[in-house]
Each structure stands twice: as structure tokens, then as C-alpha cells.
Computed example of a mutant assay.
Amino acid sequence: MTHLLGGEDCIDSLHRDIIDLQGAVLDVFSKTGPVRFPSWKFPDKLSCNLDLVSLLEEYDYVDSDEEFSQHSHIVLQELMFHR
């Protein structure tokens, strides 16, 4: 399965999954209010205050940089768990 690490299709799928999860999180927040705990991934921020739009723009597939794409894949998987 390591041949999939950093693949464009995988990264696109992770982007869509994170957007879907964020929608579910926002739905819960609309009923309960935000949960104010430090982010384990970004300890200098509250987990409810992460700017997912900028994170999704930053961690994306780069055709000419396999190593960065693999890094992006891992970070996006971590964001899935984070949400």
C-alpha cells in the first residue's frame, strides 16, 4: 500500500473527507458550541479554531515533488483523526 502514499487520487479523497467531517463537526458545534481544547496537531491553537481552508491549500498534491506529496498525505490523514 505504500505505493499509494502521496498519490493525487488519495490526496483528493482525503481533502473531500476532511471537508465532509468538518461539515459534521460544524453541525455539532451549532448545537453544542465549540469545544475549546488545544489541538494535538497544532498545540499553539485551539482545535476549534483551525483554518482548514488554508491547511487544505498548504497540504496538497505536487506533481513535481513526490516527497512533499507524501508528507501532505500523512498530514491530511492526521487531520482526519484530528477532526
Score class of each variant (00 low, 15 high):
Leu14Met: 14
Leu14Trp: 03
Leu14Glu: 14
Leu14Ser: 13
His15Arg: 14
Arg16Gly: 00
Arg16Phe: 08
Asp17His: 13
Ile18Phe: 04
Ile19Tyr: 11
Ile19Asp: 07
Asp20Val: 11
Asp20Asn: 12
Asp20Ala: 15
Asp20Gly: 06
Leu21Asn: 09
Leu21Gly: 10
Gln22Thr: 09
Gln22Lys: 13
Gly23Val: 05
Ala24Gln: 09
Ala24Thr: 05
Val25Arg: 12
Leu26Asp: 12
Leu26Val: 01
Asp27Cys: 03
Asp27Ile: 01
Asp27Arg: 08
Val28Cys: 02
Val28Pro: 00
Val28Met: 03
Phe29Asp: 13
Ser30His: 08
Ser30Asn: 12
Ser30Trp: 03
Lys31Tyr: 04
Lys31Ile: 02
Thr32Ser: 08
Thr32Asn: 02
Gly33Ser: 01
Gly33Pro: 03
Pro34Ser: 13
Pro34Lys: 15
Val35Tyr: 00
Val35Cys: 00
Val35Pro: 00
Val35Phe: 02
Arg36Asn: 12
Phe37Cys: 14
Pro38Arg: 15
Pro38Cys: 06
Pro38Ile: 05
Ser39Pro: 11
Ser39Ile: 06
Ser39Glu: 04
Trp40Lys: 12
Trp40Gly: 00
Trp40Met: 11
Phe42Tyr: 15
Pro43Leu: 06
Pro43Ser: 07
Pro43Lys: 06
Asp44Ala: 15
Lys45Gly: 01
Lys45Met: 11
Lys45Leu: 13
Leu46Ser: 09
Leu46Cys: 10
Leu46Gln: 14
Cys48Met: 02
Cys48Arg: 00
Asn49Arg: 10
Asn49Leu: 08
Leu50Asp: 03
Asp51Leu: 02
Leu52Thr: 08
Leu52Asp: 04
Leu52Asn: 14
Leu52Ser: 02
Val53Gly: 06
Val53His: 15
Val53Leu: 13
Val53Lys: 14
Ser54Ile: 12
Ser54Val: 14
Ser54Arg: 07
Leu55Met: 12
Leu55Asp: 04
Glu57Lys: 10
Glu57Thr: 03
Glu58Ile: 07
Glu58Asn: 05
Glu58Ser: 07
Glu58Leu: 13
Tyr59His: 05
Tyr59Thr: 00
Tyr59Pro: 00
Tyr59Val: 00
Tyr59Met: 01
Asp60Leu: 00
Asp60Gln: 11
Asp60Val: 03
Tyr61Thr: 05
Tyr61Arg: 08
Tyr61Asn: 13
Tyr61Val: 05
Tyr61Ile: 03
Tyr61Glu: 12
Val62Asn: 11
Asp63Gly: 07
Asp63Val: 01
Ser64Gly: 11
Ser64Phe: 04
Glu66Phe: 02
Glu66Trp: 04
Glu66Tyr: 05
Glu66His: 06
Glu66Val: 04
Glu66Asn: 09
Glu67His: 09
Glu67Tyr: 13
Glu67Pro: 01
Glu67Trp: 09
Phe68Glu: 05
Phe68Gln: 12
Ser69Ile: 05
Ser69Leu: 09
Ser69Glu: 13
Ser69Arg: 11
Ser69Thr: 07
His71Asn: 10
Ser72His: 08
His73Asp: 07
His73Asn: 10
Ile74Val: 12
Val75His: 06
Leu76Gln: 09
Leu76Lys: 10
Gln77Thr: 07
Gln77Ile: 04
Gln77Val: 04
Gln77Arg: 14
Gln77Pro: 02
Glu78Leu: 11
